[in-house]
């Protein structure tokens, strides 16, 4: 296998990063626990094909979810109509004896239902979670600490949004990768704060994602009023309930229902602000 230095002599515009660049105009591959981004512009088609394959475990291509999300196939990986979210993870192992399959199994066991979970290279992978009707927000920080304590790992989560499984999903997933690659690196990175950070730094690139989000949110005036009033009241339940002429518990019920429907928890400031902006 070539070293990074050797690759640099072949591709002088190669960039070495801690995280994948995830941009359409570059190819990312992993070497020596670092991400190499090579601009596509100076590569022939066969070079692009070869380099794209270098960073990926071969068996992933047999996976329908991998092929679908990474744009190798347009065939829907499931017939289920349940929405899904892609949880990306990056893991630093300190114990070579730890089996990556065990690590993944331990992570997977925390979720009610998972479409698929697999490693995309030695350090990163994805878990595709099935949306549950009775869902409560997952304690990602707790999962992270528990898994890390069990395997002596240091894990970072990038938690995507719940989307319908249709032909738009690979594009949305790609955009989520782009958001997370530029978000502040917390142990648990979630969708709404990453989107805000991205929007502040860029004025384009996520228009179709915003459109998809708008479509996914309920359009009825009652929900709209609830979200906007809750935002204007700075997330105060009693005040909002009073102004909506409903009981506080009814408002809590509707907020929970909104979460089950959209995957956005209005009690989270980022989610509330994002929904307010999308729905106003």
């Amino acid at each position: 296998m070539l070293s990074i230095e050797q690759l640099k002599t072949i591709y002088p515009d190669l960039e070495v990063n801690q995280l994948p660049h995830n941009a359409a105009d570059t190819i990312d591959l992993m070497l020596d626990n670092q991400w190499l981004s090579i601009p596509r512009a100076n590569l022939s088609e066969s070079e692009q094909a070869l380099l794209s394959r270098l960073g990926q475990p071969a068996e992933n291509e047999q996976r329908s979810w991998y092929s679908f999300l990474w744009g190798l196939s347009t065939k829907l990986p499931t017939k289920s109509e349940c929405d899904s979210r892609v949880i990306q993870f990056q893991v630093k192992f300190t114990d070579n004896a730890v089996s990556k399959a065990d690590w993944l199994a331990a992570l997977q066991a925390y979720f009610n239902q998972v479409y698929d979970a697999f490693w995309t290279d030695g350090m990163t992978g994805v878990l595709i979670e099935v949306k549950q009707n009775d869902a409560v927000e997952t304690n990602f920080a707790g999962i992270l600490q528990s898994v890390d304590a069990m395997f002596y790992t240091t894990t970072t989560f990038y938690v995507g949004h719940f989307w319908p499984v249709n032909q738009m999903l690979p594009g949305l997933f790609k955009m989520e990768q782009q958001l997370f690659s530029q978000s502040q690196k917390a142990a648990v990175n979630t969708f709404s704060p990453s989107l805000f950070q991205y929007l502040i730094q860029h004025d384009q690139g996520v228009a179709s994602l915003i459109r998809a989000l708008r479509v996914s949110l309920p359009a009825d005036s009652e929900t709209n009023q609830m979200v906007n009033l809750f935002f204007k009241n700075h997330g105060k339940l009693s005040q909002t309930a009073k102004q909506l002429f409903i009981h506080r518990n009814t408002l809590i019920y509707r907020i929970d229902k909104f979460y089950r429907l959209t995957g956005f928890d209005l009690r989270n400031n980022y989610d509330l602000t994002l929904c307010h902006l999308l729905m106003s």
Partner: peptide, 13 residues
Amino acid sequence: AMVFQNYALYPHM
């Protein structure tokens, strides 16, 4: 052995 502030138990186990 470590115990953290934020713990998650396996819900189905």
